[in-house]
Every structure is written in C-alpha cells, then in structure tokens.
C-alpha cells in the first residue's frame, strides 16, 4: 500500500532548477532513506514535498489525495509531518511543553499521544521538566520526532536528523527513527551518513545532481560494490 507518491517533481530557488523529474513512493510504515552527495538536492526535494518550498512542476499525493504545495502545517493536518533539520525543538520550553504545544491542531488527543510518545522514547519521560535547549543531541532528536508525532501523522519527513551529531549520537538518533516503525509511522529520511542510514532503512533512493540515480532495498544497496562511488560522485 503506497502512502506517499511523488510524481515528476521539480524544484529550486530563484528560477534555477535544483531537482528535476523526481518520482518516488513510500509505503505504509516504511522507512525510506534519501541519500546522495552534498548538493545533490536532497533537502530541496524534501522541502518541496513538505511544502516549505513551492514545487515548480510535478505532484505530491498522500494516501491518494493531492497535497502539492500545501504548507507544512496543512500537510501535517493531512498526515505528513516535517521535522526540520536543526531548529526542530523550542529551546526555551520544557520537554513537556514542547510536546503539549505540538498537539495544538488536535488538542483532544494530546494526553493519549503524549503517553504513546513517552512509551516510544522512555528517555524523554525522565526529562519532562528540562528545557529542550539543555537536552543531549540524541534526546533532542527524540523530542523533535515526538513533537511531530503529536499531530498523529502517518508519515514523517525527516531532514538530516543526525546533522551535527557526534558518531555515537548518530547511531542513537537513527535508532530513534527506527522506533517510528513500531508506532506504525512511515518516514522519508534525508541522510548524509549513507552507511548508517542504510543499516536502519528498508529502502533507499540515491540522488545525484538533482535526479534519482539508484533505487533499491537497503541491503542490496549496502552490498553494492560502487557504494562509495555513488556518494563521492559530484564531490570529486
């Protein structure tokens, strides 16, 4: 069952096309990694899907419903929540407040979803009164995911959850992402750490110079002899 369908999407800035004719699908409760070298257009593509950037061409469908160009808040209401790259928690609010505030569009479900999030990420339960700005990098990513889950989405759009984290924390953050599957939530994950991401993802899509150059199951890609070349391409 496909959840997200992207058809021939093109996007860019100031008339310059960064991503061209990208088509992809994400199934229910599937974790798909979006990989590629620096400047391949991964974040641009995610922005165009999430509505923080208006697509130039193409369509985005969520559960069969067209959601092209909806802003992130409207898209979240439709069932796909964006987790931005760095500024993804309210630093001066406590963990509990961050979760509560993120349930704004659907406040009646707040208590139930909060319990679900805390069950998914027990580390957060012990830090409810802590300001989010003081959390460790891994816990912060958990909180960011938890906040997105408070809207009750079926799909999360994750923009490099491991950016700026130390190697030990990268693993921690990606484990938090895999927890999403337990909650039955699909995710499209933009990732710089290809190898680590492939170890956790179901499937992966490799982008280079704004186009899809490879697609396949994670195990298959992880075993590919040209894996290194795929990600060095464009960087060399």
């Amino acid at each position: 069952m496909t959840l997200l369908t992207v058809e021939a999407l093109a996007a860019g800035y100031g008339g310059r096309e960064v991503v061209s004719d990208v088509s992809l699908v994400v199934g229910e409760a599937e974790l798909v990694a979006l990989l590629g070298p620096n400047g391949a257009g991964k974040s641009t593509l995610l922005g165009a899907i999430a509505g923080s950037l208006r697509p130039m061409r193409g369509r985005v469908l969520l559960g069969g419903r067209e959601v092209t160009g909806l802003d992130p808040a409207a898209l979240a209401a439709a069932g796909a929540a964006l987790v931005p790259q760095r500024r993804n928690v309210f630093r001066s609010l406590s963990v509990a407040e961050n979760l509560a505030i993120s349930a704004w569009p659907d406040r009646r479900q707040a208590a139930r979803r909060r319990d679900e999030v805390l069950a998914l990420f027990p580390a957060l339960a012990g830090a409810l009164r802590k300001p989010a700005g003081l959390l460790s990098g891994g816990q912060r990513q958990m909180l960011a995911l938890g906040m997105a889950l408070m809207a009750g989405p079926r799909l999360l759009l994750l923009d490099e959850p491991t950016a700026g984290l130390s190697p030990a924390l990268v693993e921690e953050a990606l484990l938090a992402v895999t927890e999403l599957k337990r909650a039955g939530v699909a995710a499209l994950l933009v990732e710089q750490n290809a190898r680590e991401a492939l170890r956790h993802a179901d499937r992966a899509i490799v982008l280079a110079a704004g186009r899809v150059v490879r697609e396949g199951s994670a195990t298959e890609l992880l075993a590919a002899p040209d894996l290194g070349a795929l990600f060095l391409e464009g960087a060399a």
């Binding site: 923080s52 808040a73 979240a76 931005p84 500024r87 309210f90 630093r91 407040e97 509560a100 704004w104």
Partner: peptide, 22 residues
Amino acid sequence: PWGRALRAAADDMALAAVRGIP
C-alpha cells in the same frame, strides 16, 4: 495554552508554523 504558544512562537516562529500553531 495560548501563553505557551506565544512563548513557543517567540522562541522559533518558523518551527511554530510547521507544528501547526496559528
């Protein structure tokens, strides 16, 4: 709740919009 929302928006307006705060 509205006070909390004000503080959240004061902290990060863009994120507040993404999280569906009006």
